[in-house]
Nucleic acid binder design. Structure first.
Lengths: 156, 156
DNA sequence: CAAATATAATTGATATATCAATTAAAACAG
DNA sequence: CTGTTTTAATTGATATATCAATTATATTTG
């Protein structure tokens, strides 16, 4: 009886651990990936952060996106976007001027250097992803997606 | 022929999108979870950040862990740990004094208030996790774990 | 149209992440 | 035992996250 209680408590503990750890795993995987990706980029002598690249890339894909939409596309805060754009302009990758139709907004355009760095980054992005996803099947990725989507929708 | 080429290119594009997006999904899920969890904690009037709690919890579980090990357990930098501990001491949740055996290290002990807040947090942590993982089977969690572990080991 | 409201972006304050340099103490090697 | 190396933690600098308050402009409403 006491032994069964012990087993029961153990199994509760184990189950707790399992679900506890899942958010740690998610956190660890994304942190590791970011460090890994950033390291490879820096090693290649490319002077941009992953976050700056992400914002630049978003603007490249559609330069009419308002900053608040850049924020939601990149899962960032509008305040962060303001500051990242500032740095991108400082670094000469981006030009920014007020829009005449709506003077609260800005016309964001990649400079030649901005386009260059996007091109230079491309192979590294792909290599990084390929290495991180090595030996992982499409099926697994689909499942990963599906479970993560469930978590995301449970929360919202 | 041209139509088939089109389909082929589409499928490449779709596959690219899929694997591209996986890191976005991971990032989005963990960011959403953190926001969600932090909001619930704050709403409950508990004045601590998730990161501070995580560090406090790690010390509670084993108060002989050196700061550098706290860092690796929480996937943080030692510099961040130094600063988080500073805040925890300031807030009165933690006491810190030099160790006599090794004066580079510190004796970290939860104060009564520190223990209190850990207790107060407990139900919220569980509710948050339960809600985030609602309708997700153990099987799915196991798979999630397994795929994330693969990613993590591919990177290291 | 004028006043009220809503929206886009910025700014300030505080927390955290990351890297590099530094400090203090411990461990080691000759 | 002394000089060298290693280790634990801190500090400084810069980037990003988050929240709240603010500014400027646009939109809506009476």
């Amino acid at each position: 009886m006491i032994y069964q209680l012990y087993l029961y408590q153990q199994s509760i503990k184990i189950m707790e651990k399992l679900s506890d750890i899942i958010f740690y795993s998610i956190e660890k995987s994304i942190k590791s990936y970011r460090q890994f990706a950033q390291k490879n980029i820096s090693k290649a002598g490319i002077e941009i952060t992953i976050d700056q690249w992400l914002v630049l890339k978003t603007i490249e894909e559609d330069n009419s996106t308002p900053q608040k939409d850049i924020a939601s596309k990149t899962f960032k805060d509008v305040a962060s976007i303001t500051r990242i754009i500032e740095l991108l302009v400082q670094k000469g990758y981006l030009s920014r001027k007020s829009k005449s139709e709506d003077r609260r907004r800005f016309e964001l355009t990649l400079t030649d250097e901005g386009n260059d760095i996007i091109k230079k980054m491309q192979p590294y992005i792909q290599i990084n992803r390929a290495q991180a996803l090595k030996n992982i099947t499409d099926e697994e990725i689909k499942n990963l997606h599906s479970t993560l989507s469930k978590i995301i929708s449970n929360i919202n």
